[in-house]
């Protein structure tokens, strides 16, 4: 869905864990941005009322970026910068 431009300034990379899988991501990203970059918007979050959601605003307003960070559910993924060893779990209904 998103790709990183080749001519981007070099960024420090950190390793985060998305559903138990390690990924190297630029340290400048928020948790939500990292998920969009790694796996796209599909499957980001299931809404309690049914239907699928993904971040809309990326600036702390919409709350459609809610994600489990280091075991804590419903964190605003767009406001939390990635950090070395961070564990992310998308909030989805079991298939």
């Amino acid at each position: 869905m998103f790709k990183r431009l080749d001519n981007a300034a070099p960024a420090a990379m950190v390793t985060i864990w998305l559903e138990g899988q390690p990924h190297s991501v630029p340290a400048t990203l928020s948790a939500a941005a990292a998920v969009l970059w790694l796996v796209g918007a599909t499957g980001y979050r299931d809404h309690a009322a049914g239907g699928h959601r993904a971040p809309l605003c990326m600036m702390g307003v919409c709350h459609d970026c809610l994600i489990t960070i280091d075991g804590q559910p419903n964190r605003q993924g767009c406001l939390v910068p990635v950090a070395e060893g961070m564990r992310l779990e998308r909030q989805r209904r079991p298939a």
């Binding site: 990183r4 431009l5 969009l36 971040p55 809309l56 990326m58 600036m59």
Partner: peptide, 15 residues
Amino acid sequence: MQAGAGQILLKQGAL
């Protein structure tokens, strides 16, 4: 997404 979100991804990670 909102256009602002697109810009944020561009600024934050050259995405």
